[in-house]
């Protein structure tokens, strides 16, 4: 039971990270109708930028951890968002009204570009960082087994919640959010009504990338390492989360992320660590077959 509780805590933290990435997938899919294959690599870039900016701040002599974290968060969000914007501008916008396969291949190509770019720029070896946030609370201590909630876990979950709140406000209350929802429904009509479709789509990529950067930074804090290859698997899992929650649905993406995080952690804890990715991918397949619209997605009616 204690073991289970500990795994649930770990699962929720991992799930928060997946959920943040999943939002980027779901937003882009909702508006442009394509899987942004490069999104996992955007997350990886976010992790790298967080790592580098952290390193610089520390060497500049900053010691107050909350300030460091805040600066790192803002810097990695800003720069990664620009990556998201650039990817859309270079690889997707010219293919906006092209055949369906072209943007997909372009996205796969972009994913290779990003992961190999960071391999070339930063080397292939795993980059470790010492624990930045230490300490934590012991929630339960029975028979020698301890259920711990570390400060990192608290930071990850709280940051996720705060950013989600801001993001939800952005989508539901601002003009940009309204434009996004309009483009999701009908781009042509939205354009006729004066919505700048190009700009709205760009902003979607920017926001998605910024959230992925947060996920990248959380990953760095939580696992203490980044490498150039981490985007691919994390990307597929986050996409699984987006589909599980119902693609196009923002709360769904978060819910899906949490579920995938929990499933992965529990599977590793009780069955086998080697097959944890197999479990995640199998869930993707099972969900798509039996629940193609996900948990919170809208059903699609076939028109004849």
């Amino acid at each position: 039971m204690d073991y289970f509780a500990q795994q649930v805590i770990n699962g929720v933290v991992l799930g928060s990270i997946y959920g943040l990435i999943a939002i980027g997938y779901t937003m882009v899919y909702g508006i442009v109708g394509m899987i942004n294959f490069a999104h996992g690599d955007i997350f990886m870039i976010g992790g790298f930028i967080a790592l580098i900016s952290f390193l610089i701040l520390v060497s500049l002599g900053l010691t107050f951890v909350p300030v460091i974290l805040l600066i790192v968060l803002l810097v990695s969000m800003a720069i990664t968002a620009l990556y998201g914007w650039t990817v859309e501008r270079i690889a997707y916008r010219p293919l906006r009204h092209s055949f369906r396969l072209a943007p997909m291949l372009s996205a796969i190509g972009m994913s290779f570009v990003l992961s190999n770019y960071s391999q070339v720029a930063q080397g292939a070896r795993v980059k470790p960082v010492p624990p930045i946030i230490t300490g934590g609370y012991t929630l339960l201590d029975s028979n020698g087994f301890v259920v711990r909630l570390s400060n990192v876990q608290i930071v990850v979950v709280i940051t996720t919640i705060v950013l989600l709140a801001i993001f939800t406000w952005l989508v539901s209350r601002t003009r940009l959010g309204r434009d996004m929802r309009a483009c999701e429904q009908d781009q042509t009509m939205a354009a006729l009504l004066g919505v700048d479709v190009d700009r709205t789509i760009s902003m979607t990529f920017v926001i998605g990338a910024a959230l992925a950067a947060v996920a990248g930074m959380m990953y760095l804090l939580y696992y203490g390492l980044v490498d150039f290859y981490m985007g691919f698997v994390a990307g597929i899992k986050a996409f699984t989360a987006a589909v599980l929650g119902g693609i196009g649905s923002l709360p769904g993406a978060m819910l899906g992320g949490l579920l995938i995080g929990l499933i992965e952690t529990l599977w590793s804890a009780y069955f086998s660590v080697e097959y944890k990715d197999v479990a995640a991918f199998s869930i993707l397949i099972i969900v798509l077959i039996f629940l193609p619209t996900g948990l919170l997605g809208r059903p699609e009616v076939e028109k004849v």
Partner: peptide, 21 residues
């Protein structure tokens, strides 16, 4: 070797933009 996949990815993007079909 290390630039191979980078160039391959770039080529994929450019080729798709150049000839989507």
């Amino acid at each position: 070797e290390q630039y191979r996949m980078l160039v391959f990815g770039l080529a994929m993007v450019l080729l798709m933009i150049w000839r989507p079909r």
